[in-house]
């Protein structure tokens, strides 16, 4: 695969050819149904129209608001002023912004990259050859955590972590431990692992289904340890899935507002991750212009994350044995 391959080159290692990277590009993009560009454009149009209207347009407007001192009430609502890049420079100088960014990175790395992806892969790996009730039970429970509404979930976790009569304190015999106060970040990280592991689990389960068992068998007979099998046989084949997975769960976690329902950003501001920070600015303080500017900064950070994943995984691919 040429090094200049476009970003999605790593996304589809399961193309028509089984050997990763062996298939020539035209085959992968082959227009098998004879769609042709005009019809392809027609297929894409409804989605793009909706996205343009209800996503791109409001997003551009938000970016524009980030250049003003707009507020929903008060004098700045009647007569908003253009402030240029002031909001951005103010934000970058603001301690609470960098504090919040630090927490968000901890949250993303801890709960998404390590937690959800790790646990999700582990479950998929352990369950890969299982069929039957146990696997169905595990999957059903993990998925329940994923699809329940967050306002309900918040009550569940408050009941779990309560200081006086919390279920966790009863289970661990640690009466009086105020988890959300004494270990606030750890609590919301574990919470988000619970909440979001399902997606990674499903994705990796599918990815592992695409690893030919014969290859694993060969490696095993050749004396490869479990770890070596993973590294040499499994990993190269599911690299595209890993990229998709990490990219999506990182973005989702970065923009996840649910911790607010558990901690309101507290105690003090110890769990004030970026979406909570923006919520407080925009809704509680009414500083919509400033909030919008921070949203844009958040977008740029998300962009950096995406680029990092793509370059990281592409380089790994070159290193890996073909």
């Amino acid at each position: 695969m040429p090094t200049t391959s476009p970003p999605d080159a790593g996304l589809a290692p399961r193309g028509a050819g089984g050997q990763a990277g062996a298939a020539p590009r035209p085959a992968r993009d082959r227009d098998a149904a004879g769609l042709g560009r005009p019809r392809a454009a027609a297929f894409v149009t409804p989605a793009l129209l909706l996205i343009a209207a209800f996503l791109v347009f409001p997003a551009l407007w938000t970016i524009y608001l980030g250049l003003t001192d707009y507020r929903l009430t008060g004098l700045a609502a009647a007569d908003p002023q253009m402030v240029g890049l002031d909001n951005f420079t103010d934000a970058l100088k603001d301690d609470s912004f960098s504090h919040s960014l630090g927490l968000t990175l901890q949250f993303v790395v801890g709960s998404a990259v390590i937690g959800q992806a790790g646990l999700g892969f582990l479950i998929a790996w352990v369950m890969r050859n299982r069929r039957g009730a146990l696997r169905r039970l595990v999957e059903a429970l993990v998925l329940t955590a994923w699809i329940l509404p967050s306002s309900v979930i918040a009550f569940l976790w408050i009941a779990l972590l309560d200081r006086d009569d919390g279920t966790l304190n009863a289970a661990l015999h640690t009466p009086g431990t105020a988890w959300l106060l004494e270990h606030p970040m750890l609590s919301i990280i574990v919470f988000n692992i619970w909440r979001g592991t399902a997606f990674s689990m499903m994705l990796y389960a599918a990815a592992l289904g695409n690893v030919p068992p014969s290859h694993l068998e060969t490696a095993r007979l050749a004396g490869a340890s479990g770890w070596q099998q993973l590294r040499d046989v499994v990993f190269p084949r599911i690299r595209g899935h890993i990229l998709t997975n990490l990219l999506l769960i990182s973005l989702w976690t970065f923009n996840d507002f649910t911790p607010f329902l558990l901690t309101s950003g507290g105690p003090e501001d110890k769990t004030e991750v970026m979406p909570v920070f923006i919520y407080k600015l925009a809704l509680s303080n009414g500083e919509l212009g400033f909030g919008a500017a921070i949203s844009v900064l958040m977008l740029l950070i998300n962009l950096v994350i995406a680029v990092v994943y793509m370059t990281l995984l592409r380089r790994r691919k070159e290193d890996a044995p073909a």
């Binding site: 407007w61 938000t62 973005l251 809704l283 909030g291 958040m298």
Partner: peptide, 17 residues
């Protein structure tokens, strides 16, 4: 588009929406 979707789901986009 994927990146933009993160702005629009946030609180800051409520006025445009």
């Amino acid at each position: 588009l994927l990146l933009l979707s993160s702005i629009v789901t946030g609180t800051a986009a409520m006025v445009p929406l």
